[in-house]
C-alpha cells in the first residue's frame, strides 16, 4: 500500500512539474506573440492585422538553413536546432491567448485592424529545447483586387528570451520577388 502511495506522490509531483512547465511556456508564448506584433507594428504606423497561422511556410526555414542563412547569426551553433524543424514537438502546445495579446497591444497603443486588403500569416514558432530561442516565418500578402494577390514580405525572424523579455536577434527575407 505504501508503495502505491509513494508512486502516486511521485506521479502527482511529476504532473505538477509538467503543468508548471507548460504554464511557463504558455506565458512565454503569449509574451513572444505580443512582442513580435509590437515589433512589426513599429514600421507600420502602430497598426497591424491579427495574423493567421500557416504551416506551409515552414519550408522556408529549411531552405534558409540549406542556403547558409545561419552564417549571418553571431552564435550560429545555438540556432542549428531549427534545422530539425520537422521533428519539433512544440507545435502542439501553441495555443495562443488572443484576448490577452490584444489587451497588451491596446495598452501599447497599437491598433489591431481587421483583415481586409492585407493579410499577415505566421508559421508556428520553432523553439529550442530550453524554450529561450525561437524562429518563425511571417508573410504579408496584399490584395489589390482584380483577382490578384502580391506578397509584400516573407521574412524569417529570430527571437531570444533575455532578462525575461523576448528580443529580436535577426530578421531576414527568405524570398524576394
Amino acid at each position: 500500500m505504501m508503495k502505491y502511495k509513494i508512486f502516486g506522490a511521485i506521479l502527482l509531483f511529476h504532473f505538477n512539474c509538467l503543468a508548471q512547465k507548460l504554464s511557463i511556456e504558455q506565458s512565454k508564448l503569449t509574451d513572444l506573440f505580443t512582442q513580435v506584433l509590437r515589433d512589426l507594428a513599429k514600421n507600420r504606423d502602430n497598426q497591424i492585422t491579427y495574423p493567421f497561422i500557416n504551416y506551409d511556410n515552414i519550408n522556408y526555414i529549411q531552405t534558409f538553413v540549406k542556403d547558409g542563412g545561419l552564417n549571418d547569426l553571431k552564435e550560429k551553433k545555438d540556432w542549428t536546432f531549427i534545422s530539425d524543424v520537422n521533428n519539433s514537438t512544440k507545435f502542439q502546445y501553441q495555443k495562443v491567448e488572443r484576448d490577452k495579446i490584444k489587451k497588451q497591444l491596446i495598452l501599447s497603443n497599437i491598433k489591431i485592424s481587421r483583415f481586409k486588403n492585407e493579410k499577415l500569416t505566421f508559421t508556428p514558432f520553432v523553439f529550442s529545447n530550453n524554450f529561450n530561442k525561437t524562429c518563425f516565418v511571417f508573410q504579408e500578402t496584399y490584395f489589390p483586387g482584380n483577382n490578384t494577390a502580391n506578397r509584400l514580405n516573407t521574412i524569417i525572424c529570430f527571437y531570444e528570451y533575455i532578462d525575461n523579455v523576448w528580443v529580436r536577434i535577426h530578421a531576414w527575407p527568405v524570398v524576394i520577388d
Binding site: D39, L40, N43, R44, F138, R151, L152, N153, T154, I155, C157, H170, A171, W172, P173, I176, D177
Partner: peptide, 9 residues
C-alpha cells in the same frame, strides 16, 4: 528595415 524588406526595396 529588416522586416519590411520587399516593400522598402
Amino acid at each position: 528595415y529588416s522586416d519590411d524588406y520587399q516593400r522598402s526595396q
